[in-house]
């Protein structure tokens, strides 16, 4: 019994220590912004690697989720004779929730895991150590551009996801199921507010982007430099990012749309 209590206590301490270390790590990264002439090309390369290469999965997922929303929305709304509201339903669902959340989950799975594995492998092959010994700070050179690339690309990816999703919903609702396109677009325009809906969705994706990128780079930098350690860190990135996104989404939704 005492052993279980001790193990629980040790786990609790480990979690607190890990939070502390990741906070210190983040402080070090935020403090160590590289000079623009050096940092900008590195940032552009990471935006390509983290953002542009994630476009395919984001676009395809957005298209299918929009199409499914169109089908489900039509089936439910037509029971009440309200199928003309399908455009507003799809747009609000995507812009407020599914755009930021699903993009963040896809980002964690594709880009986050790749970031962790890349940094972990650089650690295991002593590339980070050799950089330190050359008088180059790896937090500035390697970590900072990757963190900021995640921060900048996530809102853009989430907006692309929502736009493609709305287009997919239109294909199903208007082109296939015959909803009048005037009411599809008109209802959407009259009900979707820029500040309340679009901007709040962008704020969510900014937060998710920062958190997912932070988790990914920290797990890579802090991993045990062995194959098992990198594998474990990559898994942790996807699991922790997904849980953080879903948990934060609830908090942000309550703050933004609660109206208590």
């Amino acid at each position: 019994m005492l052993d279980h209590v001790r193990a629980l206590g040790r786990t609790g301490i480990d979690v607190v220590v890990s939070f502390g270390r990741s906070g210190q790590f983040l402080f070090g990264v935020l403090r160590g912004v590289p000079k623009p002439a050096v940092g900008f090309p590195l940032l552009v390369r990471q935006i390509y690697s983290v953002g542009v290469l994630s476009l395919a999965i984001v676009v395809v997922s957005g298209l299918f989720i929009g199409m499914v929303l169109g089908l489900q929305g039509y089936t439910i709304l037509s029971d009440y004779g309200s199928e003309s509201a399908i455009g507003q339903m799809i747009a609000l669902t995507l812009v407020r929730e599914l755009g930021p959340v699903v993009t963040a989950l896809l980002f964690a799975g594709r880009a986050g895991s790749a970031l962790t594995a890349e940094i972990g492998l650089m650690k295991a092959t002593e590339q980070l150590s050799s950089m330190e010994m050359m008088g180059v700070d790896p937090l500035r050179r390697v970590i900072s551009p990757r963190l900021w690339a995640g921060f900048y690309t996530m809102p853009v990816l989430a907006l692309i996801f929502s736009v493609v999703g709305i287009w997919g919903g239109m294909l199903v609702g208007v082109e296939w199921l015959g909803v009048y396109d005037g009411s599809f677009w008109g209802n959407m325009q009259s009900s979707v507010e820029f500040v309340d809906d679009v901007l709040n969705g962008v704020i969510k994706s900014v937060v998710f982007g920062f958190v997912c990128a932070w988790i990914a780079v920290y797990q890579g930098y802090d991993c045990v430099p062995t194959s098992a350690g990198i594998s474990s860190a990559t898994t942790k990135t996807v699991v922790y990012s997904s849980l953080a996104v879903l948990g934060l989404d609830f908090v942000l939704t309550a703050v933004m749309f609660g109206n208590f």
Partner: peptide
Amino acid sequence: MLFQSGALFT
């Protein structure tokens, strides 16, 4: 410093 693995940037 010459690392055991070389530690070249891949």
